[in-house]
Design a protein around this nucleic acid. Structure first.
Lengths: 234, 234
DNA sequence: TGCATTTCTTTTGTCGACAACAATCCGCGG
DNA sequence: CCGCGGATTGTTGTCGACAAAAGAAATGCA
């Protein structure tokens, strides 16, 4: 009876099934509603969404391609685990991507990009005002995603989006352990980054992005373990 | 009758079908045997490989996830196009990944990594001796892939592998236009990189990787158009 | 002849079913 | 009592078939 919402919509357009399942599962994974390591039963999902196993399977393959689920041959797929041991590789990657995408945004952004970025920052402020940790995490992702898009490098954008998604899971885990105490507020840093992008000051973009990443990383590393990142002078 | 090879193997193990199709298609795309923009007919592939459409479909979804094929709703999937206009974003990305992975390899490599890397360099020398452009391109990819693996950052490794694959197509296109004149030889630069990694000289790794990337980029940019990359001082 | 509309063909998206494989449970022997 | 082997159950991988959607062809009208 947990699937009353799906029962109400037996009519779907051709081709919309996979997208629906993909986005739904993805969100449940990123919010930890589906905990890491949990087996995913295809037939169970099939009847939950009221469709055949084929589109469910395709959604799972796509999620596996993004590293959000792990598939074992002839065995149930599971929600991808969060590898706490190699967390420093994550921090290395997200730090570099913050720096590069912010710098590129400073260089290649167009006026409409700034509109989008400022809108995301407004969303962030709203989430802070509402004291909603989940929304703050999700909107923080959208903020940096908008910056990455403004940088207009699809390779960097793809990796950044993947890292931001993975970050949602890590942050969620982190704050869950603190009983959902409010995340630290990054509004001021965000404002400074926006200003640097608008001014097209690339070095400042770089410095601010790095400081912003360091800030978050240090906070989480304090909880999970020591910071093993390289001090890349680059 | 072009599929005599597949006919000889009607027996496949359960679960091996997708992998077979995936790897075969992938290789044909990367060698430009399947030209960019070419429509991919599922039923044609199904009878070519002697299997149902289901595993072919899964392979296509995976390839789409890597950006090697583009799927249009209710229309044939096509081999992903090479976007020459935005080529500079590719060079930006591959240059940064060369630098980062080589630096990380210098820091985190283990003895067995050097064995693998040197083996790839030996393969490269063999391909040069054999005057085989296709093999040189493919083995060059393996060389840098081995370095990326030694860096032990899965996020960077994934992006680097994707860029190297895309690079196989770009290089192939480049050399094809010169009637397969032999690619320039990079043996010396490779040797220097290996030495820097072994010596764990991170700054040297960075400089050499950057110079190596610049070398290749300049060569190709001379052909496709001017170099729009940022001069990231980082 | 040219254009719009309708029919037809081709190809995809989805379905239900079946077989293979893995895990579990049960019975037997030591 | 405990470990081992076989049957059983549950889940995935693959198949063939059908219907929707898009493009191509054919038809009718001006």
């Amino acid at each position: 009876m947990t699937d009353a919402a799906e029962d109400a919509l037996p009519e779907r357009k051709r081709g919309s099934g996979v997208k629906l399942v993909y986005e739904m599962l993805r969100d449940e994974i990123l919010t930890l509603a589906l905990p890491p390591g949990k087996p995913i039963d295809e037939v169970h999902l099939a009847e939950r969404f009221g469709m055949s196993r084929t589109p469910i399977r395709e959604a799972l393959v796509r999620l596996a391609g993004e590293g959000l689920v792990e598939t074992l041959p002839n065995r149930s797929a599971i929600v991808a685990n969060i590898d706490v041991l190699n967390l420093y590789t994550y921090f290395d990657a997200i730090t570099l991507m913050y720096r590069v995408t912010t710098r590129l945004a400073g260089q290649y952004h167009r006026p409409e990009d700034l509109v989008t970025i400022r809108a995301r920052q407004a969303d962030y402020l709203r989430a802070v005002a509402a004291q909603d940790p989940l929304a703050m995490i999700a909107v923080n992702r959208e903020f940096h995603a908008a910056i990455a898009e403004a940088g207009r490098n699809p390779y960097f954008t793809t990796l950044t989006l993947r890292l931001l998604d993975e970050g949602r899971r890590i942050l969620r885990l982190y704050y869950q352990s603190f009983n959902d105490r409010l995340p630290q507020e990054y509004s001021d840093e965000h404002e400074a980054i926006i200003a640097a992008i608008a001014a097209r000051d690339l070095d400042l973009c770089d410095r601010l992005a790095r400081a912003h990443a360091d800030q978050i990383v240090r906070q989480i590393q304090k909880f999970f373990g020591r910071d093993q990142r390289l001090d890349i002078a680059l």
